[in-house]
Computed example of a mutant assay.
Amino acid sequence: MKMTGNTILLTGGGSGIGEALAHRFHDLGNTVIIAGRRLRALEIACAGRRNMHAVPLDIGDAGDIAAFAKKIVADFPALNVLVNNAGIMRVEELDRARDLADAEATVVTNLLGPIRLTDALVGHLCAAPDAAIVNVTSGLAFVPLIATPTYSATKAALHSYTVSLRAVLKGRVEVIELAPPAVQTELTPGQSTRAGYLPLEAFIDEVMTLFGQQPTPPEILVQRVGFLRNAEREGRFGAAVAALNNLAS
């Protein structure tokens, strides 16, 4: 992936990993568009940064995604990089019948959102020079956190979808997966100060170094996430599930 001179659309750019990635790519000389539900947060993230733009988007609304994609292509015809980062994480209890609103919202936001937005923009990206799609999954795509089963499942599904997308778009659009470990952000309450989680700045430092490699790896994996990503291939999947969930309990 080219590191400068791009026009990058990044969802979920108003906080956490999305905001940090947006700032780092902007610092390298890219035009960056950040999108999300909370316009004020997006505007704060853009403050004082020329060529960084805030555009509202409800990633859970299929109609809004379609209208948004048309507007973005019209307003930013040089768009050549899409980063699907927006996501939510909800705790769920599986041992009783429950309201499935959290599970449904997680599927719509974390899985259908990236699929719909990619579908809306793939024709444009296929015609753009140096085009790339970056899908942000999670280490939990490979070893699930039992307390957040639908989140883990959507990230596993997005990993699989990314593998297929990469094969189909080979030679036209570079497809990259970024799979974070547990990082200190506000994805869940109190997570930004939780002991044992990777500090956000340290995570982004390592991520940007990996993005800068030539060729760019198809999977951007910081060292900390290897415990999860490689568990099955190394024959320790069951032990990793137990270790992860004992630590989280």
Rank of each mutant, 00 (worst) to 15 (best):
D99S: 08
D99V: 08
L100D: 15
A101L: 08
A105H: 14
V108P: 03
T109A: 12
T109N: 08
T109H: 06
N110S: 06
L112G: 09
L112R: 05
I115S: 07
R116S: 03
A120L: 03
L121G: 06
L121I: 02
L121R: 05
L121V: 07
V122Y: 04
V122H: 11
V122L: 14
V122Q: 12
G123M: 02
H124N: 05
L125M: 02
A127E: 12
A128I: 01
P129V: 04
A131V: 05
A131I: 05
A131R: 02
I133C: 00
V134Y: 04
S138A: 12
G139D: 00
G139V: 02
L140D: 07
L140E: 06
F142L: 02
V143G: 10
V143Q: 15
L145D: 15
I146C: 13
T148C: 14
P149Q: 11
T150N: 03
Y151W: 12
S152V: 11
K155I: 11
A157P: 05
A157L: 13
H159Q: 07
S164H: 15
S164V: 11
S164C: 09
L165T: 07
R166G: 13
A167V: 06
A167D: 10
V168I: 12
V168T: 13
L169H: 00
L169G: 01
K170N: 07
V173G: 06
E174N: 04
E177N: 05
E177G: 01
P180K: 11
P181N: 07
A182S: 01
A182E: 06
A182L: 12
E186A: 10
L187S: 04
T188W: 04
T188R: 13
Q191C: 11
S192F: 07
A195W: 10
G196K: 14
Y197L: 11
Y197R: 10
L200A: 03
L200C: 01
A202V: 15
F203V: 03
F203P: 02
